[in-house]
Design a protein around this nucleic acid. Structure first.
Length: 375
DNA sequence: CGCCTTTGACCCGCGC
DNA sequence: GCGCGGGTCAAAGGCG
């Protein structure tokens, strides 16, 4: 971690020294011609569990039916040598990108107690180290979704509730245990998924509700990094938002974890647009035929972080998914893999998604072909 | 009143 | 052991 950080640091410094004209080539009214996507070399093959009742999917789901978005990204691009957004961006200064997706392993932050409790349900994704680097196979979706976090939590709950007389002592024990647990949890890997977006707005509206829980100054960057957590009680997804120091017009959004709930209908902004039928068709799996997804995938699946919908403030900027040239590849990938993207949260993005394939621009078709050949 | 942001303090891992 | 930097917590305050 630190090593990679240092590498990144070095890259940053090198870039500053070399003045890579990345931003100049893509900024302003110049529309990037391609979006770029990368994944970490030491990616995490986390099998996405079939969530509650998730055994159902069968159908023509294909071999990746249980994959989440981030997992697909990783598994489609396992050879990518970059370990971070910065790595990729800075090592590809010539790339005209409007959107950049990166997956990298990260230590799992210690979830709050409430999250632990909530994660005890079967919907909790296997974001523990137990499944890290587990080969992603069609059967891998059945790998236990129980995390060590939940187990620890259960153990603690038993200690503090079963034996009432020792409650105080147990509480002390629990307190004492919290630290080592935290320590262990911190080491766990969680799928991380990042993309770069040109935007004047730092916090892009991606359809989910986020609560900001922290902000830190970033070294070598004049822009702070903001930390957001999904407000859904059962969802521990986090995201970090920071503005690129080398190109202040780009925002690096890093998602950590995967949503296990539909896009909230009542969130702020334009989220209320999400038609429930659409949402359910996307999120409920085969029962609804998967919405636009022809196959019958898992009955439920990870809800991947989606490229942000462009808010009103961003309308002067062209959404990166409007670029139609590389359109078919990613949508094709999604369909092949049995993955159904979450519903666009607005009629605008919905139209874009359906008509132009919003996600297509994220993954160059060459990458898809490359990975398909490997398979 | 509920939800959210802000912000300083704190924790943790890592390198030296 | 110490310092640094990333990440998180939680109290306080703002806003609709």
């Amino acid at each position: 971690m630190m090593k990679s950080m240092d590498e990144k640091k070095g890259l940053l410094e090198n870039i500053k020294a070399e003045e890579i004209p990345m931003s100049n080539s893509t900024f302003s009214d110049q529309i990037p011609t391609s979006a770029t996507f990368a994944a970490a070399p030491n990616f995490i093959d986390i099998p996405i569990p079939s969530f509650e009742g998730g055994g159902g999917g069968g159908g023509g789901g294909g071999s990746w039916e249980s994959f989440g978005f981030t997992d697909m990204l990783t598994n489609f691009l396992p050879d990518n040598p970059f370990t971070s957004v910065y790595d990729f961006v800075f090592q590809n200064p010539q790339t005209n990108f409007q959107s950049l997706l990166v997956r990298q392993p990260t230590p799992t932050p210690p979830p709050r107690a409430t999250n632990n409790n909530d994660n005890n349900n079967n919907n909790a994704p296997p974001e523990s180290s137990e499944v890290v680097n587990t080969p992603a196979t069609p059967n891998s979706s059945s790998i236990s979704t129980s995390s060590s976090e939940a187990q620890n939590d259960d153990q603690q709950n038993n200690k503090t509730t079963v034996d009432g007389e020792q409650e105080d002592q147990d509480q002390e024990k629990t307190k004492k245990q919290l630290k080592p647990i935290k320590k262990n949890q911190k080491r766990k890997k969680e799928p991380r998924f990042a993309f770069v977006t040109k935007s004047e707005v730092d916090h892009l509206d991606d359809g989910y509700r986020w609560r900001k829980y922290g902000q830190k100054a970033v070294k070598n960057s004049p822009f702070p990094r903001s930390y957001y957590r999904c407000t859904s009680p059962s969802c521990g997804v986090k995201k970090r938002v920071e503005r690129s120091s080398t190109d202040p017009t780009t925002v690096v959004t890093t998602y950590e974890g995967t949503h296990i709930h539909p896009i909230p209908l009542t969130s702020r902004g334009s989220l209320g647009f999400v038609p429930e039928t659409t949402a359910s068709s996307f999120f409920s799996g085969p029962s609804g035929g998967g919405g636009g997804c022809g196959n019958s995938g898992p009955s439920s699946f990870f809800l991947p972080p989606m490229p942000p919908r462009y808010q009103q403030q961003q309308h002067q900027q062209l959404p990166f998914f409007q670029e139609p040239s590389s359109a078919s590849s990613f949508v094709h990938m999604i369909q092949e893999s049995g993955y159904c993207p979450p519903p666009p949260s607005s009629s605008l993005s919905s139209a874009l998604f359906m008509d132009n394939g919003l996600l297509e621009d994220i993954v160059p078709s060459q990458m898809l072909i490359k990975e398909l050949k490997k398979e």
